[in-house]
């Protein structure tokens, strides 16, 4: 067996395409990358983001109802970001109905053409029929979004299904809540690392401070930040906020 390299610690920054405008969301993605965010998580907004808290829900609503960003707008924005940063790791997040309406196969092709290798679709359990259209592609993977109540049987099944990134909810929360790390996650992470050592583990939901990023990096590979970045952007302090976060991820690598 080959020696597996420990994945590097990283920050994943989430944003909603089309919020506050399509142009500005592209600009925000650039600021994330320039500010040291290693992985972009770009959300294609859905009218009813069922797993998101108030900050991201409001951003999605603005993007859908007022900016009226279409799937094609989002694909163009993704393309612009890709042109600007050819090597950047980008994960695309959305809800299943947007992908289904566009055509799952067509969506997967558009994503692979953009060099996107991970899709986060929280309301698409990986074993529901439509997920098969995605899982049979070699170049793109779904990211299971798990919580501390995942059963051992379920986790074993997922660990043997070829996934290479696991997104853990920090606790029983919706996005943007106050941060806490559920005690059982350590055991879940241990099991993932033992079974699929090369897989990365990200933790998200409620992370906002450099200390919380450090806490997450002590337990997992990737700290995922969403609502706090949107709040910083709304307050006009995105660059300062980003620079407060990045030393934590760079320093401990």
């Amino acid at each position: 067996m080959t020696q597996v390299k420990q994945p590097a610690l990283a920050l994943m920054g989430h944003l909603v395409l089309g919020y506050p405008t399509l142009e500005e969301s592209i600009r925000t993605a650039e600021k994330y990358v320039e500010g040291g965010v290693e992985i972009l998580e770009l959300q294609i907004p859905f009218s009813h983001p069922t797993a998101d808290g108030p900050v991201i829900t409001a951003a999605c609503r603005e993007a859908v109802e007022h900016q009226r960003v279409s799937m094609n707008d989002c694909l163009e924005a993704l393309n612009t970001i890709r042109q600007r940063f050819p090597e950047q790791e980008i994960m695309v997040m959305s809800y299943v109905n947007r992908v289904y309406a566009f055509g799952i196969q067509r969506f997967v092709e558009a994503m692979t053409n953009l060099g996107i290798r991970h899709l986060i679709i929280p309301d698409l359990p990986v074993d529901e029929t439509p997920a098969a259209v995605i899982t049979r592609h070699a170049n793109i993977k779904l990211v299971p979004v798990l919580a501390a109540n995942v059963t051992d049987a379920r986790l074993d099944k997922l660990l043997n299904a070829g996934f290479d990134f696991f997104y853990l909810m920090s606790d029983f929360k919706i996005t943007g809540s106050t941060f806490s790390l559920h005690p059982r996650l350590q055991q879940v992470i241990g099991r993932i690392k033992q079974t699929v050592p090369e897989a990365r583990v990200g933790i998200g939901f409620g992370i906002s401070t450099p200390e919380q990023v450090q806490t997450v990096h002590a337990a997992a590979d990737v700290a995922i930040i969403g609502s706090a970045l949107i709040r910083a952007q709304e307050a006009g302090g995105l660059e300062t906020y980003l620079s407060s976060l990045t030393p934590a991820s760079v320093g401990s690598a």
Partner: peptide, 12 residues
Amino acid sequence: GGCFVPEVLLPG
């Protein structure tokens, strides 16, 4: 039909 929910709701 089906069961299209986030994993966190599957055990329940």
